[in-house]
Each structure stands twice: as C-alpha cells, then as structure tokens.
Design a protein around this nucleic acid. Structure first.
Lengths: 152, 152
DNA sequence: CTTTTTCTGGATCTACTTATCCAGTTATAA
DNA sequence: TTATAACTGGATAAGTAGATCCAGAAAAAG
C-alpha cells in the first residue's frame, strides 16, 4: 500500500464528509459504519483532521463531524499533511545531504516523481473526488491481522 | 518517505553491489560500512535479496555478496518485490472490490499513478543507477530515534 | 583436521502503528 | 437542572517493523 492505514481511514472519512449537504453533519458511529473504520480509532483519526482545521467536531446532541470549509477549498495535500503523511519525502536512499548539487544516483528521476505527486495532491481537492465509495458493493478489505478468523 | 526503511537499505546495498567489478564480492561488514545500514539488520535484508536470487551470498573465507546477474538484468521492480514492497498496491481507500467496473472515487487517477510507478520500476535496472552514492559527501541520514518521522 | 572467515537463522528487544477501554467534557433538549 | 447525546483524551494492549544478540553451518586455508 502506498499510504498507511491511518491515512486511508482519514481519506475514507473525508470522502463521506464531502458528500454531506451544507449544514449537515454525521456522528462517529455512523461514520464508522459507513467507512468501515473501527469506531474508537476513527475518533483518533478525526481528531487530527479537527486539529488541522479541516473538520469541525461538534459535541452534544445533534453534534458530529462536518467539513470546516467547502470541499473545493480542501486539498488532498492538506488532508495527507493532517494525517502526518510526508508527501515531500526525501532522497530514495534516505541520504540527508542529497540535493541538486550533490545528488544521489536516483535523485533526478526520484525528485521528478515526488514533484508530480506533490503537484497532484495540491491540485486535487475534495471536490474532485466526486461521490464517496459506497459500502457494500466495493466491500471493505478485510484486514487479516493473523488472529482474524471467519465466523461460521 | 515513499519507501520503508528496509527497502531503502536494500536499495543502498544493491547500489553498492552494482559497482563491483565482475567476480568481485563484498562482505557484510564492509557493506554495512559503505551503506550505513546496521550490520545485523543488513544481513536480514540481504537474505531477502539472496532468496529472491538477485544476490549471491557466499559463505566462508573470501565470501560475501555479489549480484547474481548483470546489473542490466536486475530491474528496480525485482529489488522492491524482493523487499516485500507492493508496488502494484491497491485502491487508495483500501477497498478490495474496487476495480475498473466498480471503481472508487480516486480510482482513475490513482491507478494511473500506480501504473506509471510500475512502468518506471520495470523499465529501470540497476545499470541505470550509475554509481552508488558515496558516503561522506551525501552523508547518511543520522537515525536518531526521536527525530524521525515515519510514513510511506 | 583444525582454525578462521563469513553467511544463516532463531530468539529477543524496542519503537511505532493500530486498536480498544473508559472516564471526562460539552452541548442540546425537556 | 437533569438526562442524554456525542466528541475528547488518557491509558493500555496488540501487532509489526526495525534492530540486536548469539549460536550455528559452510567454505577456504593451512
């Protein structure tokens, strides 16, 4: 997987939030239901998005989560950054002092790759994602952790 | 980082091996020295490359590691696969049943991204890497435990 | 055959990610 | 003000990647 699970969870949640009507919100239980993300862990992920001011977390009756800004103002890069995903990354060999003037072997092609990635994530917004994937048809991947057993 | 540390270590090692004269080999101590990869962990990484038949691991006096095939016959994709890095990966939302006929929201752009990655890693061989980065000038990133940020 | 070199492989340790538990806080409605 | 809904946040557990330790096993040299 190109992204870690936390990032994937966050993306799923954001995709659902992006579908809500303006003013509408969704609580953690329903969000967990719709995204297939474990309820408690989802809360932790959502917190990151709230702290990053991408999402509003409203407590109390009728509360829940909603986007802070219009979809079109939330870039994929913002979301990934909020989820601690370094998209700028570094040298393919993880050499610190690697740069244009002192390039490692992979530097030219690697930096081009990363730039196109960076460009893409800053150009793409939540509005570009269209509808969030529905549960049911595209089933949530079962994340076999070793102890998981299919129930009979 | 786009790659995990094990993959980075493996790449560094392969880059060094690719520089050896035909018939020459290098032992784990020297390889650790040159790549900045912890000696013992390097052995584990090298084992994966040996098992994948990219590298020959010769025991006893004068033994060490060397490429099994000419550099030009070892693709980046082979190396990454040997190091358990899934380059094909899956859907951005980690939905299992996501495909062309039942695509998730990110599917079109995500799959294009992954394909260009896959194409690149199968077209690039160890011969294309040129010389391995030298230690000293492009210094090895110091791996102080607190400072580090992990992500793919 | 013994010694030395060097890779192999199991066991263990640590840090980080993912997951769960549960008590707290805030907001709404009656 | 009370009850209830719902997010917040600390503590903790489980799982995996990264790292280390150390006892083999194999190959070469003497």
């Amino acid at each position: 997987m190109l992204l870690n699970l936390t990032a994937v969870y966050g993306l799923r949640a954001m995709a659902v939030l992006a579908e809500l009507e303006p003013g509408e919100s969704i609580n953690a239980d329903q969000l967990s239901e719709r995204t297939g993300v474990p309820r408690q862990y989802l809360s932790k992920v959502m917190r990151k998005l709230v702290v990053a001011r991408l999402v509003r977390g409203q407590r109390g009756r009728g509360g829940g989560f909603a986007l802070q800004r219009p979809r079109s103002k939330i870039r994929l890069a913002d979301v990934l950054a909020a989820l601690d995903l370094e998209m700028k990354a570094g040298c393919a060999f993880d050499f610190e002092a690697c740069d244009v003037h002192n390039p490692c072997t992979l530097h030219p092609i690697w930096s081009r790759l990363q730039e196109s990635l960076a460009t893409w994530t800053t150009k793409t917004t939540m509005a570009d994602l269209g509808a969030a994937p529905k549960r049911g048809a595209p089933a949530v991947a079962s994340r076999r952790t070793g102890t998981r057993r299919r129930s009979d």
